[in-house]
């Protein structure tokens, strides 16, 4: 194993934390949907790909900076998520786990390949003036877009926390997550709340996509790179646990960054998959001990 001076390791850890916050944001959407609807959404990665293309088009066609594109894309993707849950997933699920598995898989195949048919398999990226700017932190240099991503990801988590704890809709979401039948009995429209939750999860992806685009690329399969990472974070943090998703995201970000430093980019990925498999096999309730 190579040895590195502490600044390099420190920089890798910090960069890992920065990327990890965005991973956390992707995982947040996934874990929220799981916690409330009790479904595993295989289309999550493909929806992220779709959001990244949307942000790309907003930049290419309308000249919108990816950070500005957050404003129109969040309501758009909320509506999309609401519609997908209401019109596609719910009618097909009929309460069966395997049906949801297949429908969300079908969705992800459709989204991914429609993007492939439109944009072909080329890897695209946006050119923004601040892409190469750095923030100096003592001896360490951090990419500006990553720092912004970190800040906004936590801002979104805070907003989500406020929505979940202080608004009527948020209370209804938590009620449905805890006890669906009871919530329905006191007059909560469970189907509506399911779709709202799915919409929020999809909106999180829209934000994550806009944050990623200034320093990442987009191609039809880009979501796949994130979806297993997001699943890993979600099982690590405990299925359905919101703080677990954020902490898990940071942890995985650092893990990936460090193993990339020591083992090289491609083998570094294996570390994540192995964690995923081990957690699933031996501690499926997650490290932070949320309920199974």
């Amino acid at each position: 194993m190579r040895s590195y001076p502490p600044e390099i390791i420190g920089e890798a850890v910090l960069n890992g934390l920065l990327t990890g916050a965005i991973y956390g944001l992707v995982a947040l959407g996934l874990t929220l949907v799981y916690g409330v609807l009790h479904i595993i959404n295989f289309a999550h990665g493909a929806l992220l790909t779709l959001a990244m293309y949307a942000a790309f088009v907003a930049w290419k066609v309308f000249g919108l900076d990816p950070y500005v594109a957050i404003l129109p894309l969040v309501p758009l993707f909320f509506a999309l998520g609401y519609g997908v849950q209401r019109l596609v997933i719910m009618p097909a699920s009929k309460g069966e786990d395997s049906n949801i598995l297949l429908v969300t898989l079908g969705l992800s195949i459709v989204i991914e390949n429609v993007m492939l048919a439109i944009f072909r398999s080329d890897t695209l990226s946006v050119q923004v003036p601040y892409a190469m700017e750095v923030v100096e932190l003592g001896p360490m240099l951090l990419g500006f877009p990553r720092v912004v991503g970190f800040g906004v990801a936590f801002l979104v988590a805070a907003v989500l926390f406020v929505i979940l704890t202080m608004t009527d809709t948020g209370r209804a979401i938590r009620a449905v997550a805890k006890e669906r039948t009871g919530a329905a009995l006191v007059g909560i429209d469970v189907k509506h709340i399911y779709a709202v939750t799915f919409g929020i999860g999809t909106a999180c992806l829209a934000v994550a996509a806009c944050l990623l685009l200034p320093f990442f690329y987009v191609n039809p399969r880009v979501g796949n790179a994130f979806v297993l990472v997001a699943f890993t974070i979600v099982v690590l943090g405990g299925m359905g646990s919101v703080p677990g998703a954020l902490l898990g995201g940071l942890f995985i970000g650092v893990m990936e960054s460090l193993s990339g430093l020591y083992f090289g980019e491609s083998l570094g990925q294996i570390g994540i998959f192995l964690i995923f498999i081990l957690v699933l096999l031996f501690r499926p309730t997650g490290l932070f001990g949320a309920k199974a």
Binding site: L105, G106, I109, V110, N113, A117
Partner: peptide, 16 residues
């Protein structure tokens, strides 16, 4: 490219 899989995916959703 991808058109055949789009059809497969739609079929999968429809049969479920």
């Amino acid at each position: 490219p991808g058109l055949d899989l789009v059809i497969f995916g739609v079929l999968l959703i429809l049969v479920v």
